[in-house]
Amino acid sequence: MARLTVNGVVREVDAEPDTPLLWVIREQIGLTGTKYGCGIAQCGACTVHVDGAAVRACSLPLSAIEPGQKIVTIEGLAPGADHPVQRAWAQLDVPQCGFCQPGMIMASAALLAQTPNPSEQQIRAEITNICRCGTYNRVLAGIKLAAEGGRPGRG
């Protein structure tokens, strides 16, 4: 049994130590907002926060999580989905199919927590998540809008 703190709740999970955190979150804990897209840390659909930093959960084994580390998924990013990034996304109607967006939002929230007013160049360099529908320009605008809309707290 491993013990994980996910969205502020301590969970006991029974999974092999090499099970990627993504699948523990989806299958053992039952939070399906975090998506599987590639399994090799390429697409970022599985992005969650571990102690505030964006990580690609598909390539992080359960055994790599240390006791007490705080894991936050899209479901726990902000009460009422009221994070500045989520508000900006709603305002700009960013998602198309939406499958990449939990990861995109988590990556953007982590970026803003580190760098509250990122330059466009920083955003382009830091947000490497794949969106096949092609929402990138609204993502870019959304991050800028969220940055203007106040200093977000760490997820």
């Binding site: 299958e27 989905a81 996304w89 709603a90 939406g98 499958f99 967006q101």
Partner: peptide, 27 residues
């Protein structure tokens, strides 16, 4: 107009095929 399906795509609640959960489901 704004899309009707945006909000559920912002908090992880939008259910995709990948996310279907049913009683006694196997994978």
């Amino acid at each position: 107009l704004k899309r009707l399906d945006t909000l559920a795509k912002l908090d992880g609640s939008q259910v995709y095929g990948l996310d279907i959960q049913l009683p006694n489901l196997l994978n």
